[in-house]
Simulated scan of single mutants.
Amino acid sequence: MTPVAVPSLRAERELFADGAPVVLACDEVGRGALAGPVTVGLVIIDTGVKRMPAGLRDSKLLAEPRREAMAPRAAAWVAAWAVGEASADEIDRLGIMACLGLAGARAFAALVEAGAQVDDAPLLLDGNHDWLSPAIERRARVITRIKADRDCASVAAASVIAKVHRDRGMRVSHEEFPVYGWDENKGYSTRAHFAAIDEHGPSALHRHTWLHERPAEAPALFDLGVG
């Protein structure tokens, strides 16, 4: 069995050693869902950061009960955090890439409004494409890093906080639209989700522009929130 990757603060401490007083970290969840928002988590750590919470991992590597338990610990561990979202309607109108930036800018604005000093701070962004800099008017120095959510503790914390926030919202939405099973699939592609759309039609919270094409065989369950 392949061991689960354990994140560290190596990348963050290198940035502190270069003189950064704070490091920001960012990850998104819900990018590939059929329904609900795309959600961006943004956290700040400073030079006084302590050892990361035991068991902190990329949200995709944690089962739902462990993510739920980890989210408040991750939030307490970082110096500050915020979550921003862009709705399904916005995704239909603007496209997913623009909405990643929109959600990220909303999280960034929330940190600024709370008094965080973030101008020109380094910001670790999971992936190899910088969709955030234009949206925040390049106020932070975005550093893209493939698998940052797996390898960087701060990005893993952002991932968990964002994932749990989005999942809770989808469970609330499930109460209004129970036929789609969002309490289980969280808006992602499953055979049961597609069957419910076929039977009942899409809801106001579906990304309507995403429903024209579908995979020949959707997975039975997609609860890990990939993408």
Rank of each mutant, 00 (worst) to 15 (best):
D119Y: 06
R51G: 14
A79Q: 15
C99W: 01
N128Y: 05
F108Y: 10
E90D: 14
R93N: 15
C99Q: 05
A105G: 11
L100Q: 11
V38E: 01
V83A: 03
A76L: 10
L94C: 02
G55C: 08
V112F: 00
T39P: 02
V83M: 00
D120S: 13
G115P: 07
L125K: 10
V40N: 05
W131V: 14
A76Q: 11
A63M: 09
L94R: 10
E68L: 10
A35E: 11
A76P: 01
W131M: 09
V40K: 09
L100R: 14
E64V: 08
A74H: 04
R51Y: 10
A54D: 14
D58K: 11
L61F: 00
M70V: 03
E68M: 03
A69M: 07
D130Q: 14
L42A: 08
G101H: 10
A105T: 07
A82F: 04
L111I: 14
A76W: 00
A116G: 02
A54P: 03
V38P: 00
P65F: 03
V112G: 01
D120N: 12
L123P: 05
S59R: 01
W77P: 05
A76S: 07
D46W: 01
F108E: 07
D126H: 08
P53N: 12
A76E: 15
Q117A: 13
A110M: 03
D126M: 08
M97F: 12
A63T: 12
G127L: 02
D130A: 04
V118A: 00
E90T: 07
D120L: 08
E68F: 00
W77D: 08
R51H: 10
M52K: 13
A35K: 13
Q117V: 06
A80Y: 10
A80T: 07
E64P: 11
V40R: 05
P53F: 00
G95R: 12
L111W: 01
E85A: 09
P72H: 10
L124N: 05
G101D: 02
G55K: 14
D120A: 15
R57K: 01
H129Q: 12
R67N: 06
L111A: 13
E90N: 05
Q117P: 00
M70S: 01
